[in-house]
Design a protein around this nucleic acid. Structure first.
Lengths: 95, 95
DNA sequence: GAAATATTTAGATGATTGGCTAAATGTCTG
DNA sequence: CAGACATTTAGCCAATCATCTAAATATTTC
């Protein structure tokens, strides 16, 4: 898993908002976009970034493409965060 | 709390490496920089970003400035992540 | 199969970013 | 105080990024 892709994907507020929007369940690209004031093309760009980070999954359903949260990365993300901020405080290192 | 600052700060690999380096305990700017192939000026820029995100704390000690991890943000960061990926699985898979 | 709808791709543009060099600031020591 | 050392600030530049418009692709419907 490419840690860099995940952190990069989360760095943009629009993308984080997309993820939040998906918490209510899977949505088509258009339905997600309805909440944002950006063009479908820009939206699509954000989807691509989220997908590359494996944060969302896609499934074509007829003429729609449906996006859903990939909750399994939650675990990976938690690991990444813990990796940066070890529990029990930073002091001590390998003692 | 400025969520955006935190995610932005974590988006850069050098900054994440700095955080990791600080896990062993507080270090002076110079000591941290020794591990990276960038100028002190660039390093200082990264420190500023990390500080703005409240991920590190500084303390002047003589002519050195000592950086240390601010582990308390760990909690905030965990909350941010959980906020994006609600535990119990985002209802949303496919249908 | 052509029109309509949904989404992505291509290409362009302005803003942000990470890096550099040079200069400024802060602190210790002789 | 002067000179050395540590770090930051100030400008500058190239690369990346978020966004746009226009065009392409995919799918349904008539």
């Amino acid at each position: 898993m490419k840690q860099q892709d995940v952190f990069r994907a989360l760095a943009d507020p629009t993308r984080r908002a997309i993820l939040k929007r998906l918490q209510g369940g899977a949505l088509s690209a258009g339905d997600i976009g309805a909440a944002f004031d950006i063009t479908p093309a820009s939206l699509s760009h954000h989807f691509a970034v989220l997908k590359q980070a494996d944060l969302v999954r896609t499934e074509r359903r007829g003429q729609y493409i449906v996006y859903s949260l990939n909750s399994t990365v939650m675990e990976d993300l938690a690991r990444m965060v813990l990796d940066l901020f070890p529990p029990g405080g930073a002091r001590g290192g390998k003692r």
